[in-house]
Design a protein around this nucleic acid. Structure first.
Length: 482
RNA sequence: GGCGGCGUAGCUCAGAUGGUUAGAGCGCAGGACUCAUAAGCCUGAGGUCACUGGUUCAAUUCCAGUCGCCGCUACCA
């Protein structure tokens, strides 16, 4: 069995998580759970990115140390992972001593490709990123993302020779050795390569930003936060000496949002190539979530926190909507009506009710005794293929095809009518087949809706119906807006 | 400015290497049933597949152009 390593990006702890933040978690979690279901040894890592000027700035505003601030903010993400029932094995923080030490080892490994140069450019502390003269000019000197002035930076920095490695990485992307999905994102990044990649600045003077990992051998500089954050994918495995690193690198899938494609499809593979490590097998860049068709923003006041939904509908309903109704390959929209419709029609009526009616009939007609449950028989090739390609929405479409198929089967066979004929064998056969379908559905659902899958198994897997206190997904009435 | 994507039923989206009546789900209308969370099942009404032109026996599907939306990227200055 081949080892399976999946990562999420490490969110920057400058803001509290919202529903957009959950996508990384959910997608990677499905991959990890699906791989475990195949008995692969899995390592699933997530974590938080915590250095940089912006964090220091915010901490100062609050009158606490950057570490105190980061501790607090990081905990929000850890809590979120828990709330979402994410099965990560590790949660790495870029302020972990282990990360800081190993990041320095990676820096040393890259030393041959790092040189000192003069950097002239514009920087936005909000983005923790540099911008070209052109962009700054176009925005009249004010960063539109954060409504603050770009800082003109003119200083001595270390540079990484990204340009030397671009051709090799490009080759890996084109050959599919390093897959980038979806295709549109791959094309975008190919264009970037075609336009040419320049060396990048990878440090900042400590005098300006002290909240960072020191550059080995130069007390006056700290590593540029982005450069160092990327290293978490190796440090979390205990690079360079730990057994896990040998076992799990390269990553099978790295899940990211589309906004950080460039870092992960250009800078990161460049670093890996420089160190002489293989590239991840796949990079999956998902889209963004809008709310009622509008971008979430504090100023619009339409930011939705996951708990607003989970508290009322449960974690699996949340997972379900975001995994099936937010398209896996493009941006998607969240709105209350569609969420409620999906919840009632698909979870409560189609799935929940099929469980309920099956259990009820077996209880009524056979005293709860489930007959001989046949082997699952449906073809799962499409489903498996969809997960492989990170088309989670399609995989769930496929599962729902089976849920509907089951309801149709029940209508065709009419077990309630059979029960009146007294043909007990036939009745038992039909009901057992229903159970077989439900257990199969539970299996397919388990990476997506682990609790639900567990509940279905609980009810049916022991040969006799085990009643539960509550229905799977109680119907919810529409609420007045507001 | 360059590169790329999108524009298909009221809504969200599939799809077609060009060829009989263009698909799904939601929503809407009607029907038969009763095991079930007033759930499930069946049937139906809705589309000149953005617009214009071209290639072709035949285009919504290929090509070009136009309009609209979006993404990446560059620069004149």
């Amino acid at each position: 069995m081949s080892n399976y390593f999946v990562t999420t990006a490490t969110p920057y702890v400058n803001a509290e998580p919202h529903i957009g933040t959950t996508l990384d978690f959910l997608y990677a979690d499905v991959l990890a759970r699906a791989a475990r279901a195949q008995n692969k040894p899995v390592l699933f890592s997530t974590g938080t990115d915590e250095h940089g000027g912006k964090i220091a700035e915010k901490a100062e505003e609050m009158g606490i140390t950057p570490k105190e601030f980061a501790d607090k903010m990081s905990q929000n993400f850890r809590d979120l992972a828990k709330t979402l029932n994410i099965s990560n094995d590790r949660f790495i923080r870029t302020t972990d001593p282990g990360h800081e030490q190993r990041a320095q080892l990676i820096w040393k490994a890259l030393q041959k490709d790092i040189y000192k140069g003069k950097y002239i450019g514009w920087y936005c502390t909000g983005d923790e990123a540099f911008f070209t003269e052109a962009v700054v000019k176009a925005n009249n000197g004010v960063c539109p993302n954060h409504n603050r002035k770009y800082e003109k930076i003119e200083e001595e920095n270390y540079f990484f020779k990204l340009s030397s490695y671009a051709p090799k990485v490009l080759e890996a992307i084109e050959s599919g050795e390093f897959k980038i999905v979806p295709e549109t994102k791959k094309n975008e990044i190919l264009q970037v390569y075609k336009d040419g990649l320049e060396d990048i600045s990878v440090s900042r003077p400590k005098s300006k930003i002290s909240w960072g990992i020191p550059v080995p051998g130069d007390d006056t500089q700290v590593m540029y936060v982005w450069f160092e954050a990327l290293m978490n994918y190796l440090t979390v495995l205990g690079y360079p000496e730990h057994e896990d690193f040998k076992k799990f690198w390269p990553a099978n899938v790295q899940v990211i949002g589309k906004d950080i494609l460039r870092f992960h499809a250009a800078v990161w593979p460049g670093m890996l190539t420089a160190i002489g490590l293989p590239l991840p097998k796949m990079l999956y860049a998902h889209g963004f979530i809008t709310v009622n068709g509008k971008k979430m923003s504090k100023t619009l006041g339409n930011v939705i926190k996951p708990n607003q939904i989970i508290d009322e509908f449960g974690v699996d309903a949340f997972r379900y909507y975001f995994l099936r109704h937010i398209p896996s390959y493009t941006d998607g929209d969240f709105n209350q009506d569609r969420f409620l419709a999906a919840y009632n029609n698909e979870l409560a009526n189609e799935l929940g009710n099929s469980v309920q009616r099956t259990a009820a009939m077996i209880t009524q007609y056979q005293n709860g005794i489930i007959g001989n449950v046949p082997e699952a028989e449906h073809d799962q090739a499409q489903y498996a293929d969809a997960i492989e390609k990170c088309q989670f929405d399609r995989a769930l479409d496929d599962v729902w095809g089976q849920v509907r198929g089951l309801n149709q089967y029940i209508e065709e066979e009419k077990p309630w009518a059979i029960s009146k004929t007294g043909d007990k064998d036939h009745l038992s056969e039909v009901l057992a087949y229903q159970v077989s379908c439900l257990l199969e559905i539970a299996n397919m659902l388990s990476p997506f809706l682990p609790e639900t899958a567990q509940k279905i198994r609980y009810i049916f897997e022991e040969g006799i119906i085990r009643p539960t206190k509550t229905t799977l997904f109680p119907r919810k009435e529409a609420q007045e807006q507001g």
